[in-house]
Design a protein around this nucleic acid. Structure first.
Length: 268
DNA sequence: CTCCAGGGTTTGC
DNA sequence: GCAAACCATGGA
């Protein structure tokens, strides 16, 4: 274990529980995050100091980008002329970071997410990881990687249904076959403009406007994008009188969306 | 038992 | 083009 200093916005509970990642959890009083082949255990030891389980190198190369640490969030939070509801949301959600996660994981995760509760999403993903991912031995436990398209090459729709995927099983199956057929599908589009990337991603069955926006925001760093789910719908229609408060926010829109989502599911 | 969950696709007008 | 119907499953 080594110690690092983070002076940016950085609240591990909020990062792990704002509906953007579904495999983060607490283990032995550490927050645990997984990305690709990497597992991180991390806990705060002071206002700005954190104990981490990885090397300095891995922190810089993998986890810094993952936690979007190059970006300053506090100037965004102090942005003027915010809608009153967003001011409340920011106050509540300060410390959130929009993670940069694996595109393939985001594709499957948010196809699965449709009409499922957050615990149900996490449960289905964990079943897939334990069944088709690869084990990693850590000091505390065995963690399973998120299965790649190759890991899933021989999986049938019926196999998928056993992970509580229901009617989404054909969507997942199609996405697997698409990636096996076109392995570059999720890398060839990294330089596309937002609207073109949107169209590109919606070629995947089960990926519509909302899921495509989630993939763009959470995997490709497209922070102009605002996924509109049932909660953000309520923000617009109930809290903001039908006027979308995010559209005016440019590159910060997606980040404010995340503050709003966290506020909606945590208040009361 | 009923209702709903970070929606998308298909169908009917 | 648009709204409604339909989709599996788990949890409250």
């Amino acid at each position: 274990m080594i110690t690092i200093t983070i002076t940016n916005d950085f609240d591990l509970y909020k990062i792990a529980n704002c509906g953007q990642c579904f495999r983060a959890t607490m283990v032995n009083n550490y927050h645990r995050f997984i990305t690709g082949q990497h597992v991180l255990y991390i806990r705060p030891i002071s206002e700005t100091e954190y104990e981490i389980s990885c090397t300095d190198q891995e922190w810089t190369d993998i986890w810094g980008p993952y936690f979007d640490l190059h970006r300053e969030y506090s100037p965004l939070r102090r942005k003027r002329k915010l809608h009153p509801f967003l001011k409340e949301a920011v106050q509540c959600g300060a410390g959130i970071r929009v993670l940069k996660q694996e595109p393939w994981e985001m594709v499957l995760t948010f196809i699965i997410s449709q009409r499922k509760s957050i615990p149900a999403i996490a449960s289905a993903i964990e079943m897939m990881c334990q069944r088709w991912g690869h084990p990693i031995q850590t000091p505390f436990e065995i963690v399973y990687t998120f299965p790649t398209p190759s890991d899933l090459a021989d999986v049938t729709e019926d196999d998928l249904r056993e992970c509580s995927l229901g009617y989404r099983a054909p969507y997942i199956y199609h996405a697997i076959q698409l990636l096996l057929d076109r392995p570059n599908f999720l890398t060839e589009c990294t330089t596309y403009r937002d609207d073109k990337l949107d169209t590109h991603l919606q070629q995947i069955k089960g990926v519509g406007a909302k899921v495509a926006n989630c993939i763009m925001l959470f995997a490709y760093g497209r922070t102009k994008r605002v996924p509109i789910d049932t909660w953000i719908e309520k923000v617009i229609n109930v809290e903001c009188n039908g006027i979308n408060p995010f559209e005016r926010l440019g590159n910060a829109a997606g980040i404010f969306q995340q503050y709003a989502f966290y506020y909606m599911i945590h208040r009361k």
